[in-house]
Amino acid sequence: MTNILLGYQPLFDLFLLHLGMAYSQWLVLRAGVFSLATAGLAAVGAYTGGILVVSLGFPAPVALLLAGLAGGIVALGLSIPLARLRGVYQAIATVAFIQIVLSLNIYASGLTGGPQGLNGIPKTVGTVTLLIAGILTVYLMYTITNSRLGRAFDAIRQNEAVAASLGVSIVRHQTLAFIISGALAGVYGALEAFHSYALAPSQFGFTFLISILAYVVLGGRNTIIGPIVGTAILLLLPEIARPLAEARMLVYGLLLILVINYLPHGIADTLIERARARRLSARLAKSDSVATTATRN
């Protein structure tokens, strides 16, 4: 039994790492920012952490914090142009950002190892650290979305004019969401660096971007459980059905098309909505008189 569990440990680690990245993507979408920058910000964090430890001999915990800071600061810088753009333009601009990070990464080979990547990072992060990080992340996402910030994010995403008319500053809240998302991506990038001995520039490219997006879209964009469900399903699917492992990108592609067209709220969100509707209609039936008078008013 323990052997079987141990066999799944690498997968569990991968799940926790990708879950953090998925929350980084999830938070910006929740605040109505059309950003795909998580991949680029994770690269910034991963390389910041890796270089600090390998070249400058920083202790891993300090490097981890600085990586988060770096992710947050880059996100702050990026949010200035993003705040002036809308929808599709934000998506294009962030894809350009990823591309710039990728090519600078390869160009600055003296610092980053270039195409060969950054090697010899001491492995200081294991399952326990990742689990703690995961729990902390879920807690923070929960508190943020249940605070005035989360309420403002929800309003902005659904209707900017309404949000502004109620005193919500759109630019300030979207910038904040983006900074938190960037810090999260930075921290998880560094966790990935400290977990895997080596970094390669291609690691944070388009395959990564698509995977993270697929987790969030499949799971659900508006509930906290969404990214957990999406990440778990997409990582487990190839394990359960081995032939699918070969066609991972094909499966992701088909799922993206199907989910967006037929289950636009994602699996977790749709289930939660259904459960809520059932509960409410049951309550309505029970206290019919109260509800009817309320409806008549």
């Binding site: 599709v88 698509i210 094909l250 993206l256 636009p264």
Partner: peptide, 24 residues
Amino acid sequence: LRKSGDAEFGAILSSMGASLVIMT
């Protein structure tokens, strides 16, 4: 998607999916 509200974002994801399928 054209008929749903969230089409702008949906189109990006949906066509990204198509791209993956064709590439594979």
